[in-house]
Design a protein around this nucleic acid. Structure first.
Lengths: 297, 297
DNA sequence: ATGACCCGATAGATTTTCTCTATCAAAACA
DNA sequence: TGTTTTGATAGAGAAAATCTATCGGGTCAT
């Protein structure tokens, strides 16, 4: 019956019987039968179908909620027992927003020092994807904005505040300044993330609030791509200060603080609000609490 | 795998493979195989055996803890989905201490008025049994002392305070008094519950604290038995006032308040601290909250 | 309108898993 | 030392889950 609940979870995230089956490592008829069996055991339809997946019934949504919890607990149990025998080991799946990717190492490095047998999978995702994947148990934890959208049932640990800098060549407009304002930045053509990224929306909002009408000459979902353009000195961008520092500056490239208004978006670790958490996740949250203090700038 | 967890729960309460199997409705080899299968899947021994059951390993205890939770959630899920379709229905298992039996109707009567399709099983148990059965998911809720022994992981709703009265014939010693003291009661031979009952221990403590050396001429685990003796007018007992009132007084039988010290033991509803609770249990807790106010005497 | 395709349900065969009966060996007990 | 109790084991039979193959209803593009 437990595997049937997993079928349901897969169906919730794939919204497609065939793909959900593949994700579970079974064939589509098996998954269909499993769902049908759940429905029979509850005596209620869980999924609306009409020759294709059409979402869940209200009862289905409730079952889904329980299924997430039960499957999560099952995994936590296995992990806990395993680590009682072998110490902390396994794989930790983390999803982070692109602008936070560069700081993930401040968590993973001390974590790995403490627990060398833990392996990591770290994915670059949008903030909304992170919350969805957290909900569906696809990742163990996320690193994203804490103070913007409603977070749902998660525990969160603030890590740092995103402060923005203009990355621009020294000989370009504004390149000689000690600080710039958002209004001034709005005059410069910029390379930014794609609009599905919250960071892009935040920066665009800041530019507009300062009265500007930003020109986004190039957009991408990859910070590496953005930076590789900026470092030529022929493009400009706005990045969190920490990220700019990590990527490194060249002779021609300057990183200029943007003041007025100073930004206020807090970024932190989020993990499913389950009590108790899986040992791996609990250790990550503990690490985040430790790191949070040292990051406060 | 879920049924295997149920096997483990049964084993925890029966401490005997054969009886646990019977409780699960399977044969002993099936249960043995189930437990062995769990152990294989975790890669750890869960049960210490040496030709007979010898308790759980530390890992077994942890798994047991999770199993309780997961099995409980599974049941809650089924119940919730069922009540989404059919309204609140099913069976509510309640365990109550003997001295509280008479007040259970103040909960069940309004509950039944609201939810006529719910059936009740109400068992008379000692306070320690209640906590154990709550832990093992054998009952949905208990009515017991709230302020004496550590309660464990439960949510509790205070219902009323137990005040004691001397039940005695009018023509017996003390029978003509308006109030009596514990010291005086200690001089009278009493019918009380057996010493495994907390009520007995409480009363005995009160008697001794007042300097008395109580004579218990008759003891039983049944309040009916005690009362049937007392109502003859030839025996005396100490009972909570509410219980005495319910059982009714006869011409010869008087119920005399015992003062100095006034007693202070709170009795309330306890239910497993699970969020969310099963719908049936949640409704019972709600009912208890409602009733609590009206009971305050 | 119609043909191609996508999606999920269904049928039947096969494999796997589960559960039972019967029996055994070890420990406890008398 | 015999008897009982308790849990493990073996093997047969039953039940279940899963697979392959196929069907039929919708959708979409031409």
């Amino acid at each position: 019956m437990l595997d049937k609940l997993e079928f349901l979870l897969a169906l919730a995230r794939e919204k497609h019987f065939g793909r959900a089956a593949e994700a579970c490592g079974v064939t589509q008829p098996t998954l269909s039968a499993g769902v049908k069996q759940l429905e029979a055991s509850f005596g209620v339809l869980l999924v609306n179908r009409g020759s294709r997946f059409q979402g869940f019934t209200p009862e289905g949504d409730r079952v889904l909620d329980w299924a997430r919890r039960i499957v999560g607990d099952m995994r936590a149990m296995r992990q806990e027992v395993h680590s009682l025998k072998n110490g902390l080991a396994g794989r930790l799946n983390i999803a982070a927003i692109p602008t936070a990717l560069a700081m993930v190492e401040t968590l993973t490095t001390p974590y790995r020092a403490r627990h060398p047998d833990v392996q990591f999978t770290i994915l670059s995702r949008t903030s909304t994807e992170i919350l969805a994947q957290l909900e569906n148990l696809e990742v163990d934890a996320g690193i994203t904005y804490l103070d913007n959208e409603p977070l749902g049932r998660v525990t969160s640990v603030p890590l740092y505040r995103e402060r923005y800098r203009l990355l621009v060549a020294a000989d370009a407009p504004l390149g000689d300044r000690e600080t710039v304002t958002w209004a001034e930045v709005a005059e410069v053509p910029l390379c930014l993330l794609t609009p599905d990224m919250q960071n892009r929306r935040i920066i665009e909002r800041l530019l507009r609030d300062a009265g500007g009408d930003p020109h986004i000459t190039l957009e991408s979902d990859s910070m590496i791509l953005l930076f590789s353009h900026v470092r030529t000195g022929r493009w400009a961008s706005v990045m969190p200060s920490r990220l700019a520092a990590t990527l490194g500056l060249t002779d021609v490239l300057r990183s200029i603080p943007i003041g007025n208004p100073d930004s206020i978006h807090t970024i932190g670790l989020v993990a499913p609000a389950r009590e108790p958490m899986t040992p791996l996740t609990a250790a990550l949250v503990a690490e985040a609490r430790r790191v949070a203090a040292s990051l406060d700038d």
